[in-house]
Amino acid sequence: MSAGTVKLKIDNIEVNVPEGTMILEAARANGVVIPTLCDVEGLTAYGGCRMCMVEIHGSPKLFASCVTPVSTGMEIVTQSDKLKEYRKMALQFILSERSHICSVCVANNSCELQKLANELGVDHVQFEREWTSFPVDSTHDFLVLDRNRCILCTRCVRVCDEIEGVHTLDLKLRGKDEQVIVDLDDQWGESTSCTSCRKCAKVCPVGAIYVEGEALSETKDKNVAKFVLSRRNR
């Protein structure tokens, strides 16, 4: 084994990855799929959605695989009854905290949340729904921010800061009231920092940021960060 390589098992598959690799990356590189919502390749890991939780043999705790580095000898379980139940619980929490009405949503059929709910068999939400009425910002020429569909994954905030480099988007307030804001909580149309690059709409996993008049299936491009970085580092 070469120096700097870590040997571990993921779902009983033996894998070798460079030291410092996160479990999620190691799994991906070896064809093991772990559900995620806040992670985007190329952006700083956030660890917020908790979909990517895995079990590590010998520990009673669960670990968010996107932010847990591998170490030698780890035996990782990415699928179990408990993990499935917990992932379904997370999806139900997300679906119920704001107004997710897929039938009238621009992201219908190209939404990562909707897709995961389908894959994991979330056929209803056992908790009361919130039916929020957060402000919708449609003042930009073509970008729209509907906070009622936002799952607070901060992909948009991170891509705007880390890839586009302008940090137009950020968060305000906390807990259930937390919201994505533009500049210092201004109207998007009046933003002086936004370059209208659309990267936020490309990475938004749901229908919270979209390009007006454009099908989200066209807009979305989860690889934008990875792509820009690969060009930049060439």
Binding site: G48, S96, E97, E130, L152, R174, E178
Partner: peptide, 20 residues
């Protein structure tokens, strides 16, 4: 619920359900 920072789903959204 008031003090949750809002970063992660279990605490931000889950506690609200418990509260309900």
């Amino acid at each position: 619920v008031e003090e949750s920072c809002g970063k992660c789903v279990p605490c931000r959204a889950g506690l609200v359900k418990v509260q309900e």
